[in-house]
Simulated scan of single mutants.
Amino acid sequence: MVSPTAQMMATESAAARTPALQRVRFTPEMFHRLGELGLLDDETRYELIEGDIYPMTPEGAEHAALGTVLAYRLMERRSQDWHVRVEKPLRLGESEVIPDLAIVPGRPSDYLERHPETALLIIEIAHSSLPRDRLLKLPLYARAGVPEYWIVNLSERRVEVYRAPAGDSYQEQQVYAAGATLAPLFAPDWVLAVYDLLHCA
């Protein structure tokens, strides 16, 4: 009969011989190479968040309709200093994400050879994606120094506004209901009705 001590020593010896599992952290270059090789499903869009590849949450009808309306509204105001990108990649450090809407510096022609590496404002429209937008994307955007992040929260009919990035979060967090107005930091004279951010009317 094998003693408990001998069993424990045998288990520890086997564990010592087993190589430690290593986590593969993908870089944007590896991420793109996987796509070029056809190893990612062509029917699915993916995001690279700090080394991990995530399939994007399927977009519901209201999400899609509101995203289109918001894009039109944001594009009504034109500037030579910034422009609106709709569901286009951002390269944030070693991550490559596809926010619903991002206002980035410069003109579209500035990004013919690379994706933008920052944004003045990122807007995510959230319903089923709310946990990811809060738990995964918010810390990423804060660490990347994105100065302002809005979550258009369709479940609770409000807009969550995050400002002043610091470490893994934002120092300023406010919630705006449908009757309020809101202005982005980069254009404080541009007053938007929160109701219009929540509805397609």
Rank of each mutant, 00 (worst) to 15 (best):
S3N: 15
M8V: 01
E12T: 07
A14W: 15
A14N: 13
A15W: 10
T18P: 04
A20W: 09
L21P: 07
R25G: 15
T27I: 10
M30W: 05
L34Q: 12
G38C: 06
L40Q: 12
D41P: 00
D42K: 07
R45N: 07
R45H: 02
E47M: 04
E47S: 12
G51N: 10
P58R: 12
A61M: 14
A71S: 14
Y72A: 13
E76M: 03
R78K: 08
R78Y: 10
V84R: 03
V86C: 06
V86S: 03
K88S: 11
P89F: 02
P89T: 03
E94P: 05
S95G: 04
I98E: 06
P99I: 06
A102N: 07
G106V: 12
R107W: 05
P108I: 00
E117L: 01
A119I: 04
L120P: 09
L121S: 02
I122F: 01
E124Q: 05
R134E: 02
L136S: 08
L136V: 07
P139D: 00
L140I: 12
A142Q: 02
A144L: 03
A144V: 14
V146F: 01
L154M: 08
L154E: 01
S155Y: 00
R158P: 01
E160V: 13
V161S: 05
Y162N: 03
Y162G: 06
P165T: 14
A166H: 11
S169I: 13
Y170F: 09
Q173G: 06
Y176G: 04
A177Q: 11
L185H: 11
F186E: 09
V191N: 11
A193W: 06
L197V: 09
